[in-house]
Amino acid sequence: MIELRNVTKRYDTTVAVDDVTLTVPDGELTILLGPSGCGKTTLLRTINRMVELDAGEVLIDGQSVRSTPPEVLRRHIGYAIQSVGLFPHMTVRRNIGTVPRLLGWETARIEARVTELLSLVGLDPVAYADKRPAELSGGEAQRIGVARALAADPPVLLMDEPFGALDPINRERLQREFASLHSRLGKTVVFVTHDIEEAVLLGDRIVLMREGRIVQTGSPEELWRGPEHQFVRDFFGDEFGLRILSRHRIADLKPGAAPQGASARVHLDTNLRDALAIMVTESVERVSILDGERVVGGLSFCDIVTQVRESL
């Protein structure tokens, strides 16, 4: 668990982070979201002491980060940034092995870990281990960046707009892969982004910031259902509801009766936003739900809208 207590950071006249108190629960993916310049990066970097505080304290598992020398602390916290920052003169293998090397692992152990991580991020170890960063596409480089951050198996991962430099298609692919990676690995992740879609797609919790302060914290559904400020509503905009729909699958809802006769069909693992799109495209108000080939029920437009509001 990461606790930030009354954290403040000033640069000359700007107050980058202004008296922020926040708890990041273990195993969750917490998003720091907000407009550019609102202090997300600064707040993130107080956790691994890349930014030293003017006031307040940061605790990891109850222990102040100031009780550990910064280099030692950072070797136990994964860190990935937007520009990737892969070391251009090193092979992918050496890049990924950076922190294990700093920690003094044996060569064989590092080698095994590199292979494991490349597979984990969906790259063929044989084909990629000896490449240089200049030979990688943006998406590949970003995967290596994630693999490198995970190298020493740190319990906490800090990510600063890691997919920000990718084209929309690659970005979405990596976001989905990362979401599934996160649910498998169960790391505590603090993830900075200014992209609402990314935040809603990935976040277990969203911390919405403005001008160095937290406006509201909660799951995307909580922020959607109960915005505490006009700023929350304005920031997420009219599409917030649709984006919430894409977080959930048909299987998350209670099915109703299947429609009579021929009808449009959706699968249990179709997300609700896509289900809605199918209804609009097919001009139907009710669809059949398939589990494999078998029809297991039906859902109407109204079912989706009311259930999403009330029970998700």
Partner: peptide, 23 residues
């Protein structure tokens, strides 16, 4: 040397000397 490279090194726990020699 690109700033992002040095910053990444710092973020992963390289000391100043390690950044100088390795990066």
């Amino acid at each position: 040397v690109p700033r992002s490279v040095v910053e990444a090194g710092r973020g992963m726990g390289m000391t100043r000397t390690e950044r100088l020699i390795q990066l």
